[in-house]
Design a protein around this nucleic acid. Structure first.
Lengths: 226, 226
DNA sequence: TGTACATCAGTGAACGCGCGTTCACTGATGTAC
DNA sequence: TGTACATCAGTGAACGCGCGTTCACTGATGTAC
């Protein structure tokens, strides 16, 4: 995964708008701490997101972190956000590699598979970030979940919308299609990472992924490509 | 969930084969500790499985636990085993409620949905145990995963075998059908518990479950019942 | 242009917490003789 | 039937750990005058 996926997005610009370093005032501690925490998550998963360690890596006292984050949970939320963004970025990269043809149904189908592959590839290549993205610790679920916040979900929804629009999927399958699709892909990711499928050899893993995508495609009433 | 699902299964019978209590020697500490730990997991998930607390609840010193478990991880494994057993028990209970008809395909289809429903109901009613069952902490995955150890998986595999045998599913869909099926159900459970679907209202939740089961049924090439 | 000063962003020491685990020990048990 | 003794299954005190968080403090900064 390119560094850009987990690189800092300015949260707190200085008045001069420059990033200052090697000074008493760090200049962009919020980002620096988040980035360090993201690296911790990338290596060791959500449990590895330790406020003190992030501060240590940035070369700052642990107390300094409390100027930028209200609590450990607050830092965790920032890491989760970046992890989700990185997941969406991986999916979008695989989507961008799909060259459009003249057949919109064929296109939609390939895009759907690409999105699923991106999701699963991210989970397998960045297990720490993937686990962190879906870590429930502390951060309580909102009463009415904001699916829009999950770019990954949005991407799938849009693809399915397109497929309905061009007649690839019958409209009555539409309402819960994204949730069902997401479930199948997410479940396989979980089983491959932490579940009983964790030790699966490379080839079997690939076959399982294909099988899950086949299930989705067939389940939505689409005809698989030749 | 009936108590029996998480009740003790003798691991360490005394020579007299009786369970002794109110004595200096507890008589069945292994089970008592496991059961206490299972209750902790049931309430607070895997993070709540604390050796010292389990000992406290049984009324025994923390040290005593080390006569029966090599480590905290060892206790955890016992709790995971019971959680998985409870999951399978719930599925089997829903399966037992299915009265067979003369149509084996229809039967298989209903059994498949019942198994899926049992899985999801367990996850929603016993989130702590469900999370614990699939907790990866410490317990490293074996190189070649032993799917047979997962009774839940076995149940689904058997149902799918029957459906292939009676012509309900074409044999070429068989190889990875259980994994794909499991993924879809497991993923929905995860999204409903810890994921972005956590706050979903009751009715929407039911619809999502139906949608996931529909996806599976359609994906396997089965015709849904009228 | 200087300078006083409010404010922002850091510091280091310390606290309490509760855990898993170990230590040297004691009470209970059942069996060989 | 009694008894010595090996063994099993408990006890209580203690340790180290590293965390999140708070405290009173100081260094740096930019602006009002």
């Amino acid at each position: 995964m390119p560094i850009s996926d987990i690189s800092p997005q300015p949260r707190h610009k200085t008045s001069s708008n420059r990033i200052r370093r090697d000074r008493y005032h760090h200049g962009d501690l919020t980002n620096a701490l988040t980035q360090a925490a993201v690296h911790l998550a990338s290596t060791g998963g959500p449990e590895a997101v330790v406020l003190r360690e992030a501060a240590r890596r940035v070369g700052v006292s642990a107390t300094a972190a409390y100027r930028h984050f209200a609590s450990h949970q607050d830092l965790m939320r920032a890491v989760k956000d970046r992890s989700l963004a990185a997941l969406a970025a991986t999916m979008q990269r695989e989507l961008a590699a799909i060259a459009p043809t003249c057949n919109p149904i064929e296109d939609g189908l390939r895009r759907l598979r690409a999105a699923g592959n991106g999701y699963l590839h991210f989970a397998l290549r960045q297990p720490g970030l993937f686990r962190t993205a879906f870590f429930r610790g502390g951060v309580s679920a909102t009463a009415s979940p904001d699916l829009g916040a999950y770019r990954a979900f949005q991407l799938v929804s849009e693809i399915l919308d397109d497929l309905v629009a061009c007649g690839g999927i019958s409209p009555d399958r539409r309402p819960y299609a994204p949730v069902a699709t997401w479930s199948a892909v997410h479940g396989l990711a979980m089983l491959l990472l932490d579940g009983p499928l964790a030790g699966l050899p490379e080839t079997a893993r690939g076959e399982a992924i294909e099988a899950a995508l086949d299930l989705i495609v067939a389940g939505l009433g689409l005809c698989p490509p030749d």
